[in-house]
């Protein structure tokens, strides 16, 4: 599998932050989906965001600007 199609999960502290992050991701035109937080990760809310790992670098500056803190986990396929 190519690096560009690797999937990453973005984990947030709260639903408020998930929704805030989703608005930013939508505004950037990035493909994403909201999925349940896998139980092996510390679940701080019921949902997280899955994106292509290659899109992370586009998102990071926007998240930093909006004080959105997250944990990134690469998904094993």
């Amino acid at each position: 599998m190519s690096e560009s199609s690797d999937k990453c999960l973005l984990l947030f502290q709260s639903i408020h932050k998930v929704m805030q992050a989703e608005r930013i991701i939508v505004s950037l035109g990035i493909v994403y989906q909201i999925v349940p937080v896998p139980k092996e990760f510390s679940s701080e809310c019921g949902m997280c965001i899955e994106i292509d790992c290659s899109d992370i670098e586009v998102i990071v500056p926007e998240f930093q600007f909006n004080n959105i803190f997250y944990n990134k986990v690469k998904v094993d396929v």
Binding site: M19, Q20, I34, G46, M47
Partner: peptide, 21 residues
């Protein structure tokens, strides 16, 4: 309901709640 899972119905509700906020 709000934020207690991640299926579409919950996501839709969570969006409205957070947009209201």
């Amino acid at each position: 309901t709000y934020g207690r899972s991640a299926y579409d119905r919950v996501v839709a509700v969570s969006r409205v709640v957070e947009n209201t906020r």
